[in-house]
């Protein structure tokens, strides 16, 4: 068994070179490279955690904005409905007012027309009486040769017309 047979002659060499090479591994690999590799891993973990957090925050933000937008949209809809209703009411009122105005104008014109008709009728009637009185006087004069006074003739015509 060489491990025992060669023990006395090789243990110093074994220990010496092991300390040299394991020491080098410890210094170069363990102390030099390992921390930087761990650093990279930690950095990556942090980056991933940060990215996840950012994504989470962004989603929250988006949701908040959507909620906000929905509220604003609802408010805008409400306002639009109000405006439409107001416009409708306004339009109806205006139409009613205009109709009333037109109606009033029409009424006055109608009244005026009726009045002028009545006047014209009155005038025509007056004219008719006068013509009738004139005609009666003329007839009386031609038939009898008597001259009838104008007032008398008119009163007679009036009496006849009222009766008839």
């Amino acid at each position: 068994m060489p491990q025992i047979a060669q023990l006395s002659e090789t243990f110093a060499s074994q220990a010496f070179w092991l300390l040299i090479f394991f020491g080098l591994v410890y210094l170069v690999v363990g102390r030099g490279m390992l921390p930087r590799i761990l650093d990279t891993v930690d950095q990556r973990d942090q980056q991933i955690a940060g990215d996840l957090l950012a994504a989470h925050n962004a989603r929250e933000e988006a949701q908040a904005q959507e909620r906000d937008w929905r509220q604003r949209e609802a408010a805008a809809r409400e306002r639009a409905r109000d405006i439409v209703a107001a416009a409708k009411a306004d339009g109806a009122a205006q139409t009613a007012a205009r109709l009333a105005e037109v109606q009033a104008t029409l009424d006055t014109r109608l009244d005026e027309a009726e009045q002028s008709i009545a006047t014209a009728r009155q005038q025509a009637l007056g004219e008719l009486e006068r013509v009738a009185a004139e005609a009666s006087r003329d007839i009386v004069r031609r038939l009898t040769g008597a001259e009838v006074a104008e007032d008398e003739a008119r009163m007679a015509v009036e009496r006849v017309m009222q009766r008839g």
Binding site: W17, V25, M33, R36, D39
Partner: peptide
């Protein structure tokens, strides 16, 4: 003390160098 460079020491060196090479691949830090 005798510190002859033996076949044992040679393979300690090989192991150390290979380990160093292996670790170099992890130093890209991507």
């Amino acid at each position: 003390y005798n510190i002859a460079f033996t076949n044992s020491a040679l393979w300690m060196m090989v192991a150390a160098v290979l380990l160093w090479v292996f670790m170099l691949g992890g130093m890209k830090r991507q």
